[in-house]
């Protein structure tokens, strides 16, 4: 009996040990990014291993704001990223909500075809459309303008938004709307005053995903913008890399600042992300 108990304890210790290893593997690069951002240069450019910045320095953080990179403070790039992401999310949310309501609330011809179309277009690699969207944006006079990026990101995020949002709309019991309808509410006010408040949490979750996708988007931001003052954060990052040497302190400070909003949003919606992506794969 004693033997069994020892074995059980050993098993538990092994599991916890494995847990710690996974934790360290996952966290180390993120920790290293933040820690480097707070190290003075002589602790960065060294062949020694310095686990903690001692003492921590705010030099890099303040420098990326005041001096910036490529001629602009990173405020400018953060602002550009935020403008693109917020506009794309706001526009996308309207389109997605309408389409999701259509597929979740109505049975109509081509409904199945539309859902399958959504699945297929989600799988077309965005990178493959780069060339044709580039020529399109150029022809429409939206090259080198943030509006071009907004439009593109609405297109890139919409299929997934509709796909995810439809499960939230379908989760609202039909009876609630029917009751409002019987009470004489118009179609619009049924939608706006009854369905919308109930779907709002789902809409927030879906919007956060679109925000993260747009915030992180690199390939289009790289090709559609030429003016340095209009760069988004992901594109601006690479200008810390010089011909001869790289400003590691600056690039880590900027990366950290760029990662923070995503990290916060992520912890808020991680549960829904999984259910959205593998929706229907498991029958619980």
């Amino acid at each position: 009996m004693n033997d069994g108990l020892t074995r059980k304890r050993l098993g538990r210790a092994a599991l916890n040990g494995a847990g710690i290893v996974v934790f360290l593997f996952a966290v180390f690069p993120v920790y290293w990014m933040i820690s480097t951002a707070f190290k003075p240069n002589d602790q960065i450019f060294t062949t020694e291993f310095i686990p903690f910045p001692s003492p921590p320095s705010l030099d890099h953080i303040s420098r990326v704001f005041t001096k910036g990179v490529a001629g602009h403070s990173i405020w400018q790039y953060l602002l550009n990223s935020a403008i693109v992401a917020v506009s794309a999310v706001a526009l996308g949310a309207v389109f997605a909500l309408l389409a999701a309501t259509a597929v979740a609330r109505f049975r109509f011809r081509f409904r199945t075809s539309f859902l399958i179309l959504l699945l297929i277009v989600q799988m077309v690699p965005a990178e493959a459309l780069l060339i044709s969207l580039f020529t399109m944006v150029k022809r429409l006079g939206m090259y080198d303008q943030l509006i071009g990026l907004v439009v593109i990101n609405v297109g890139l995020t919409l299929p997934f938004s509709v796909w995810m949002l439809r499960t939230f709309v379908a989760a609202v019991p039909k009876e609630v709307e029917e009751a409002a309808w019987i009470d004489g509410a118009s179609r619009f006010s049924t939608f706006w005053r009854v369905l919308f408040p109930l779907v709002a949490p789902g809409l927030v979750a879906t919007s956060i995903f679109s925000f993260i996708t747009t915030w992180n988007e690199f390939a289009y931001a790289l090709t559609l913008i030429n003016d340095q003052g209009k760069y988004t954060m992901p594109v601006a990052l690479q200008f810390f890399v010089g011909q001869r040497s790289t400003d590691w302190g600056g690039i880590m400070a900027a990366s950290t600042l760029m990662t923070i909003p995503v990290l916060i949003f992520f912890l808020l919606v991680q549960r829904r992300m999984v259910s959205g992506l593998v929706a229907g794969a498991v029958k619980g």
């Binding site: 934790f23 690069p29 990052l237 990290l263 949003f265 992520f266």
Partner: peptide
């Protein structure tokens, strides 16, 4: 811990 890895933007 794994969320931190997952959330890091590809460029970062």
């Amino acid at each position: 811990g794994i969320m931190a890895a997952w959330a890091t933007p590809p460029t970062a």
